[in-house]
Design a protein around this nucleic acid. Structure first.
Lengths: 194, 194, 194, 194
DNA sequence: AATGAATGAGTGTTCATTCAT
DNA sequence: GATGAATGAACACTCATTCAT
């Protein structure tokens, strides 16, 4: 997240507060303190607390999507594609642990709020993009046959789960050290049996 | 959760509120309304809101643990054991969707609260029990070599991920319909390559 | 305060609570804890919190009055009488610091409560008794001429003031060490100039 | 107390409530009603109830200290100094009976609260100032020899005691009518015998 | 654009008291 | 007499939001 504009400073401050006190535990006053903006400024830029949360969420998922997009450009096999989904995610989480923790825990909230439709739209595009990238391989029968939503969970589920635990300080192993293992497992789990 | 005692009625009511309004969105007043207990009674039994949350959480994980324990008794192979972890979880989630949603989203909060150590203790026992059940097979080299915390995520990660999505109404497929698939994937992901 | 009956045990416990937490800071629950009586028992004996306070107050002032009465029996001069008022007070405070602190701070409260008239009656009797003891000397012109309420404050004021400070831990000097000095000052302040 | 700013209006309202209902009997809502400020404004200015009490207390003692200071400027004998301590006090109490009652009954509470150290500091300065004013006379042997804390109680004790009684409506005599008498008694009580 | 004093509905919690056993 | 679970009115305080400057 660039550290340039006032808006970004506020978002940065909000994220730090969310990390320390939780989203519900963070008050506007706390964000104001840390961002050194005024309350008026906060409301001028975002309108209300919910929209600060949504903006931070959407920016986070956009970053991961961009990372993925960049990867797709240099990817030319089913295996590389599947592994890319995992490694991009791991890389993003390791590079932005606070942001990742926030995103992982706030989805339901944003989804239920006034910006929910925006999120859902972004999500549809995200999935759409991934399926486009994979559809050719799928038609070639390179993947096990399973429902699309199940397919997604099988690929990314172990990574999500481990990332959650790592971010909560519950693992002995570092997330970065599992990068290849998780990618390999993902590939083996979805590839069609020879 | 039995529907007998006053304490359980309160817990039941709290869960319903959490499902409808979220944990933070639920007020003591709402729980009082639904449980038809008095505020004084609520505080007499639980002391504060945090402890209502913790009690509900702990009861939930205990139920899953009990289900698992019952399954271990009739399990006699590495494959059956691994699959049991998945199917028990799926069964519990399908039978108790509200409770599962609550547990899935409140872990961090309970962990951070005053009852956190209790939870961590319960968790240690839970993992201990699972590793006991699997250690013999592990020593026979029936599993891929990987860190223990990673091993756990590989087995249960896809199920956790899919269950989260299903509970949030984001899947087209029913969780119950993926029961065998998820169990099979779990087993294939951790078994040593022939 | 005798440690015999249940009522006295409760009063004793209440006083200890008042000392530690203040009268308003003390809850019925705290008194119950310390007295090892049940809530029901507390209410059976006293009816409500206010009446516990009043009973303790009245018992305290009665003790001082008794001490004074005993002294009057062996007193045969204006000087001895005046000094007795001071020394009896000092002796009682030193012997019952917690009780004294409570009495010194709760007069207004008891006076304003439902037992206020009882207190006022006791006070009238108390003053009546003192004036009886002093009236002969007064008629002999042994005292300075001043209003009765002023006379009382001149005698006991320094002692009250110092006792308050001593009970609050604000003095370097011990109250007991000022006993004779305060008595002497009282006598000099009210005796007619030769 | 000036009647200008919002803060002072709140303090004024609080004092009126304390007089009518007692400090513990006064709710924030009552102060809000009388001051015509909003609850938010109350908390914006003072933070919590305790700090309203402390601010009122400190302002009260500061006023008396100022009165005293002004008097010291025109005082040039031991007798005048001692009498000034009494008359300043009487004058302040007569001019501000509600405030005086509050100060007389809330010292322990403020002392025990978070602003206690502030109060103690103010007190130290107050005493320091008085002893400076009297030390020259003391060194000349114009006073009876007694501990400093006792000395203070002997001078102001009768006045404190009578003022308390007068403020509680327990005296027949007016405080103002005892002004000279109390000053004279104070002086006679501490001056060295000729 | 920026500011921050003011707002007040709503929150979790306390605690004196009652009453069925 | 004794018990203690149950009651619910009342409280101090929080915090997202507004708006005049």
């Amino acid at each position: 997240m660039a550290r340039r504009s006032r808006k970004d400073e506020i978002l940065q401050a909000a994220l730090a507060c969310f990390t320390e006190a939780g989203v519900d535990g963070t008050t506007i006053e706390m964000i104001r303190d840390r961002s050194e903006a005024s309350i008026g400024s906060l409301y001028h830029h975002f309108g209300n607390k919910e929209r600060i949360i949504a903006a931070l969420y959407l920016a986070g998922t956009a970053e991961y999507a961009a990372l993925l997009e960049a990867g797709f450009a240099t990817t030319d096999s089913a295996e590389a594609c599947v592994k890319l989904l995992v490694t991009s995610y791991v890389d993003w989480v390791v590079a932005n642990p606070d942001w990742a923790r926030f995103v992982l825990h706030s989805r339901g909230r944003v989804e239920a709020g006034e910006q929910g439709e925006l999120l859902r739209e972004a999500n549809r595009e995200h999935f759409q993009r991934i399926f486009e990238a994979l559809s050719a391989y799928r038609e070639q029968g390179l993947f096990k046959d399973m429902p699309a939503d199940c397919f997604a969970s099988v690929i990314i589920g172990p990574t999500h789960d481990f990332a959650r635990n790592w971010l909560a300080g519950r693992t002995h192993t570092q997330l970065a050290d599992c990068r290849e293992l998780l990618a390999q497992v993902a590939w083996e789990s979805v590839r069609a049996n020879p």
